[in-house]
């Protein structure tokens, strides 16, 4: 074996984490492709299926093809894709220790790496799903509906950062309180309806809107919709600064919690 005589190089913490996260993303993508019949297409079909169901339900309730001046499919795609991205990454913290127990025999692999890898993987998959859906709609409409690409990218990035923070807190929390899993699963369902996935916040009563706009997930979804169309009306409280600031503070808190508990999590 070429190079077998050279000793293993001691790596910096950043180098190790970079390698581990890369390897975990590779492993997870290979696993998903081999575990799920139909490979990537099947993985992409999940959010597309949800969008289709909600579109049909909304069209039955009201035959309008636009929601708040935005094409109904683009409107739902932003909600479903961004929320599913958040939900899948956030809930990973509850199961990662059990699911990846054997991986921690490789001392370079730490619990946080599995969450970062999951976040990168889901971000890639859901961004691909968004490109497919937006592409299909644009092709159908014969016009590119995109006003602000950087804002759209920021919405995805901020949603991912919020999800990583939730995932880390779930990871630590469920270690001390195993029953938290049940509570968080209910909370996740409640968040689905509190994040404006299937409705436009501007169209709901003021008292409810003033309350719901504190939800940073709702703000990310609204920003993504706004990025697609200048005519899409968002509540005045929705700004890029709020979810960005929230994500910064929330992620700092989650990282502080995690670093103070990493050894406890690994201890057998």
């Amino acid at each position: 074996m070429e190079g077998s005589d050279s000793r293993l190089r001691r790596l910096s913490g950043f180098e190790i984490q970079w390698r581990v996260v890369n390897a975990l993303v590779y492993r997870e993508l290979r696993r998903r492709v081999s575990d799920v019949q139909g490979g990537f297409l099947a993985v992409l079909m999940e959010p597309i299926g949800q969008i289709a169901v909600w579109t049909v339900l909304r069209m039955i309730a009201s035959p309008a093809t636009m929601v708040n001046n935005l094409n109904i499919i683009l409107f739902l795609a932003c909600g479903v894709i961004l929320f599913n991205l958040y939900s899948r990454v956030a809930s990973h913290g509850l199961t990662t220790m059990e699911a990846n127990k054997a991986l921690f025999f490789y001392r370079r692999v730490k619990p946080i790496d599995t969450i970062l890898a999951k976040a990168i993987e889901e971000l890639g998959l859901y961004a691909s799903a968004a490109i497919v859906v937006f592409g299909l709609v644009w092709a159908y409409l014969y016009s590119l509906v995109l006003r602000d690409l950087p804002l759209l990218v920021m919405a995805f990035v901020l949603m991912t950062l919020l999800a990583i923070a939730s995932s880390l807190l779930s990871l630590v929390g469920s270690h001390y309180f195993p029953n938290l899993k049940q509570v968080l699963s209910w909370l996740n369902r409640a968040l689905y309806f509190a994040s404006g996935v299937i409705y436009a916040p501007i169209q709901i009563p003021q008292f409810a809107r003033d309350f719901l706009v504190w939800n940073p997930l709702l703000q990310c979804i609204e920003l993504a919709r706004r990025a697609l169309s200048v005519d899409y009306q968002i509540p005045s409280q929705v700004t890029l600064g709020y979810p960005a600031g929230f994500a910064l503070v929330y992620l700092s808190l989650a990282l502080w919690c995690y670093t103070n508990n990493e050894k406890v999590l690994i201890r057998r």
Binding site: L8, Y26, R30, R31, K101, A102
Partner: peptide, 29 residues
């Protein structure tokens, strides 16, 4: 540098091939 316990089988992903599992560990180490 210290190895993982030699011969441990728990770190392998059942649905991945031997080659893919080896690639995964090689990417780390």
């Amino acid at each position: 540098t210290i190895s993982w316990p030699v011969g441990i089988e728990g770190g392998f992903q059942g649905s991945l091939t031997g080659r893919e599992n080896v690639t995964f560990v090689s990417m780390i180490y």
